[in-house]
Simulated scan of single mutants.
Amino acid sequence: MTRDFEQFPDDENGNVLWQMAEDGDDLTEAHEIEFSIAFQTQEQAEKCALYLLKEEQKISLFEDEEADTLEWVITIYVYMEPEYSDIIDIEEWFTKIAEQHGGEYDGWGCMAYVYDDEDFEEEIQS
Results as ranks from 00 to 15, higher is better:
103 G>N: 02
49 A>K: 14
85 S>G: 06
66 E>A: 01
3 R>F: 02
3 R>L: 04
81 E>M: 09
84 Y>K: 11
15 N>W: 00
88 I>V: 15
37 I>W: 00
7 Q>D: 03
84 Y>I: 13
122 E>C: 10
65 E>C: 02
28 T>A: 03
114 V>A: 12
73 V>W: 02
85 S>W: 09
1 M>L: 09
68 D>Q: 11
16 V>Q: 06
60 S>D: 08
5 F>A: 12
120 F>P: 00
48 C>N: 09
98 A>N: 05
56 E>C: 06
99 E>S: 09
91 E>R: 04
114 V>Y: 07
9 P>S: 03
58 K>R: 15
21 A>C: 06
35 F>W: 01
66 E>R: 00
18 W>S: 12
42 Q>E: 10
4 D>H: 11
72 W>D: 07
65 E>G: 03
16 V>M: 13
30 A>W: 02
17 L>S: 00
61 L>P: 00
116 D>M: 13
75 T>W: 06
84 Y>R: 15
67 A>K: 08
56 E>M: 08
27 L>T: 13
100 Q>W: 01
120 F>R: 06
47 K>A: 07
79 Y>N: 12
61 L>V: 06
10 D>W: 03
114 V>M: 11
52 L>S: 00
2 T>I: 09
40 Q>K: 14
33 I>A: 09
101 H>E: 03
75 T>F: 04
106 D>V: 09
52 L>Y: 01
104 E>H: 06
73 V>L: 00
7 Q>H: 00
42 Q>D: 10
24 G>H: 06
30 A>C: 06
108 W>M: 11
104 E>G: 06
38 A>T: 07
20 M>G: 03
31 H>T: 10
33 I>W: 07
14 G>M: 10
69 T>S: 13
87 I>H: 07
7 Q>S: 06
113 Y>R: 05
55 E>T: 03
15 N>D: 11
67 A>V: 03
8 F>R: 11
121 E>G: 04
27 L>P: 13
56 E>S: 12
97 I>Q: 04
16 V>W: 08
86 D>L: 14
121 E>M: 11
4 D>W: 10
33 I>Y: 07
50 L>Y: 08
81 E>Q: 15
112 A>M: 11
116 D>Q: 12
62 F>H: 13
92 E>Q: 03
116 D>E: 15
124 I>Q: 09
115 Y>M: 12
43 E>D: 11
67 A>E: 07
112 A>I: 08
52 L>E: 00
123 E>D: 15
63 E>Y: 09
58 K>T: 14
6 E>L: 04
15 N>C: 01
71 E>K: 13
64 D>F: 10
54 K>R: 15
87 I>D: 08
2 T>Q: 12
41 T>S: 15
14 G>T: 08
72 W>P: 07
108 W>V: 08
122 E>N: 05
31 H>N: 15
19 Q>F: 04
93 W>T: 10
95 T>M: 06
125 Q>A: 14
11 D>Y: 02
2 T>E: 14
69 T>N: 12
7 Q>V: 03
36 S>N: 03
47 K>G: 02
59 I>E: 01
62 F>D: 08
70 L>V: 08
85 S>N: 07
81 E>F: 00
91 E>C: 04
82 P>E: 13
108 W>D: 01
85 S>H: 10
102 G>M: 09
68 D>H: 05
45 A>W: 01
40 Q>E: 08
97 I>T: 06
97 I>E: 04
27 L>R: 14
51 Y>M: 07
101 H>Y: 15
19 Q>V: 02
